[in-house]
């Protein structure tokens, strides 16, 4: 995908989200700040899919939540330019946000807890239209039926409740709910990790099909590297709140530059008994509350030198659209 000559749909600059947790003895006012997301910057171009990967606790979900402003970022800019002029989502008020939210939708991980068990499928899917005061009862119903068909359910299902559906079908309902507002930008937070393999493939195919039809721009958060490789155009690898490598999916997977990416890739169990894993032990994940000085990956890195212990590396371009945050590349 050629990305240079286009305007980015979303550009995130120096996004930080710190959580302040109490520490020390009870009643003490001491807090530590947990740097869940720390100076994350990237651009997202219309129609592309960016995969966000990393181990649990690396800040991938926090990043995506900060972008939809489910969380207020501590610092940084989130420039969203759907209508031409960029708007900084990070400093909009709730009222201003409400106008822009229909453009940005989210699909959640757990299809069981993300649907209200006491609402029918019809009312779940039409609720976004009601909230945003779009159309009237009749047009809403028509649109709802259309969306249900689009995601592979029947319009008759509208009267049923979530418990009557399987995991895969519920995920389809979640997708219909996101789809009905005709968003230009969708964030999928681990949309298939709760599903079985055979159903997982159905949902991935559906997401790709819808993306083609509606020209969605996607951020795809997942810990399953094979799924990310399959669906994304570009990948950002996160470690301890920072992006450590960003680039074209095939480049990152075939020629990973950062030692962390290399280790992460070597840990994928490949479904072929003749291709043995070459994973080497590398110790504990960094605790985001007590990050080491310098590069946060250095205690686990086998190539670590003195510089790594002192200075945090910046994300530096290595060739076309391939950024690596390591002193030693």
């Amino acid at each position: 995908m050629t990305t240079q000559n286009k305007m980015p749909l979303l550009s995130v600059r120096d996004l930080c989200k710190y959580f302040h947790l109490p520490c020390g003895r009870r009643w003490s006012r001491k807090t530590i700040s947990v740097k869940a997301v720390d100076h994350v910057s990237f651009d997202l171009y219309p129609g592309e899919t960016l995969g966000l990967v990393g181990e649990s606790g690396c800040g991938k979900t926090t990043t995506s939540r900060a972008i939809v402003r489910a969380l207020r970022p501590t610092r940084g800019k989130i420039l969203f330019s759907d209508s031409g002029t960029p708007v900084d989502l990070a400093c909009l008020s709730e009222r201003q946000l409400k106008k822009i939210r229909p453009k940005i939708q989210m699909i959640f991980q757990d299809p069981f807890s993300s649907l209200n068990p006491r609402m029918t499928i019809g009312s779940i899917v039409t609720e976004p239209l009601v909230i945003n005061k779009i159309g009237n009862a009749k047009t809403r119903k028509e649109q709802m039926a259309e969306m249900l068909t689009k995601v592979g359910l029947k319009p008759e299902d509208a009267a049923r409740y979530p418990h009557a559906f399987s995991g895969g079908q519920r995920q389809r309902i979640g997708i219909a709910r996101a789809l009905i507002l005709k968003p230009s930008f969708v964030i999928c937070d681990e949309p298939v990790s709760a599903l079985d393999v055979s159903v997982q493939a159905q949902i991935i195919n559906l997401l790709r099909e819808l993306q083609r039809q509606f020209e969605w721009t996607l951020i795809f958060v997942a810990h399953d590297l094979n799924v990310v490789r399959y669906i994304s155009d570009r990948v950002a690898v996160m470690y301890a709140g920072r992006i450590v490598e960003l680039g074209d999916t095939e480049t990152v997977f075939n020629q990973p530059g950062h030692p962390y990416t290399k280790t992460l890739l070597s840990a994928i169990p490949y479904p072929d008994p003749d291709r043995k894993m070459e994973y080497k032990h590398m110790g504990q994940v960094a605790d985001p509350g007590h990050l080491p000085a310098g590069c946060s990956f250095h205690p686990r890195c086998s190539h670590c030198v003195e510089l790594c212990r002192q200075k945090q590396p910046d994300l530096i371009a290595q060739g076309d659209d391939h950024f690596i945050g390591c002193h030693l590349v």
Partner: peptide, 8 residues
């Protein structure tokens, strides 16, 4: 568990 821990 995460993939890295899984491998371990």
């Amino acid at each position: 568990l995460d993939v890295t821990i899984q491998a371990e």
